[in-house]
C-alpha cells in the first residue's frame, strides 16, 4: 500500500515529460517511420518493410565503418582510461596547486568540438603546423591527408588531448574521497605503491571509473566532428566512422530510408554495448555469492 504522496507532483514532472517526448521520442519515431519506407523524392513514401535493415546489416560499407568504430573506441579507452588514472594519481591532493591543476585539466573540455578539429587540422599540417612540421623535421614521413596510419594517429591523439581530462577529473574526484587512514594503514602494512593502487585506490575509484568508461565509450563511438573537420573521413574511407558514413548517406546521397535504418542499428549497438560495460563492471566489483548468512 505504498501511497502516492502528492498527486500534484505530476504537474511538475509533466513539462519534462513533454520535453522528452518532443526532443527524443517523436524524432525517434520519425526515424523509425523513415526506416521502413522508401522515397523517390517529392515527399512520396512507400512501404519498404525490413529491407533497409537487411541492406544495412549486409553491406560491407557498414561493416567496415562499424569495425573502425569499435577499433577506435577500443584504442581510445585503452589509452584514455589508464592515462587518466595516471594523471589523476600524479595530481596534488592538497595545497595551492590543486585549483591550478583542475583549471588546466578542464581547459580542453571547454573547447567546442569543431574548434578542436580545426586547431588540430592546422597544428598537424606539415607545411605550417607546429606539430606536423616538427615531426617532419625529425625525418618521419608524416601526412595525415595521404597516409591512413597517420590519419588515425592524428584523430586518436586529438581525442586523447580533448577527452583524457574528463577521465582525470572523474578519477581525481574518486581519489580525494579516500580517507587518509587508508593510506596510513597501507603504509603500516608495508604495502608497495602498486598494492596501494590495486587494493585501495582502484576499488575506491570503481564507481567513478564506471562512469568514465561509459561516457568515453559512448562519446568515442559517436565521434563525428573532429575527424570530419580534420580528415573528412579520409584518406579513402579509412577514418569514415559510422556517424560520418551516416551523414554521407543521409545528406550526401539523400538515402533517408537506409540512413534511418542505419541510425537505429547504430543506436541499438551503443545501447547494447553500454549495457554490457555497465553489467560487467558493476559485477566485477561485487562479492561472489556468500557462504553463510549475513547479519
Amino acid at each position: 500500500m505504498e501511497k502516492t504522496w502528492n498527486n500534484k507532483a505530476w504537474f511538475f514532472v509533466l513539462p519534462v515529460l513533454l520535453l522528452v517526448a518532443f526532443s527524443a521520442v517523436i524524432p525517434l519515431m520519425t526515424v523509425v517511420n523513415y526506416s521502413v519506407q522508401d522515397s523517390f523524392g517529392n515527399n512520396q513514401f512507400f512501404w519498404y518493410g525490413a529491407d533497409w535493415f537487411r541492406e544495412v546489416l549486409t553491406s560491407e560499407r557498414f561493416h567496415d565503418a562499424l569495425i573502425r568504430n569499435l577499433l577506435f573506441s577500443a584504442i581510445i579507452l585503452a589509452i584514455e582510461v589508464p592515462l587518466g588514472i595516471l594523471v589523476a594519481l600524479a595530481m596534488p591532493k592538497k595545497g595551492i596547486w590543486v585549483p591550478v591543476c583542475l583549471v588546466l585539466m578542464a581547459l580542453p573540455l571547454l573547447i567546442p568540438w569543431n574548434v578542436v578539429g580545426t586547431i588540430w587540422q592546422v597544428f598537424a599540417r606539415t607545411d605550417i603546423g607546429l606539430l606536423g612540421y616538427s615531426v617532419d623535421a625529425l625525418g618521419i614521413d608524416y601526412n595525415y591527408v595521404r597516409n591512413t596510419f597517420d590519419a588515425w594517429v592524428t584523430v586518436v591523439v586529438m581525442d586523447v588531448w580533448h577527452w583524457t581530462s574528463l577521465v582525470v577529473l572523474l578519477c581525481y574526484a574518486g581519489l580525494v574521497s579516500i580517507p587518509d587512514a587508508y593510506y596510513q594503514a597501507a603504509k603500516i602494512d608495508g604495502a608497495s605503491r602498486w598494492a596501494v593502487f590495486r587494493y585501495i585506490q582502484l576499488p575506491k575509484m570503481g564507481r567513478v571509473l564506471l562512469i568514465a568508461v561509459l561516457l568515453r565509450f559512448m562519446d568515442s563511438f559517436m565521434i563525428y566532428t573532429e575527424p570530419f573537420v580534420v580528415t573528412g573521413g579520409g584518406p579513402g574511407n579509412s577514418t569514415t566512422f559510422l556517424s560520418i558514413d551516416l551523414v554521407k548517406l543521409a545528406i550526401g546521397q539523400f538515402n533517408i530510408g537506409e540512413a534511418a535504418a542505419m541510425s537505429l542499428i547504430y543506436f541499438l549497438i551503443i545501447l547494447a554495448l553500454s549495457w554490457i560495460f555497465y553489467t560487467v563492471m558493476t559485477n566485477a566489483g561485487n562479492d561472489k555469492p556468500m557462504t553463510g548468512g549475513g547479519e
Binding site: P179, Q184, A185, I188, Y199, K204
Partner: peptide, 12 residues
C-alpha cells in the same frame, strides 16, 4: 601497527 577510528579494511 595501528587500528583507526573507522575500520580500514581492503574491501576487495
Amino acid at each position: 601497527a595501528q587500528v583507526f577510528q573507522f575500520p580500514v579494511i581492503y574491501d576487495t
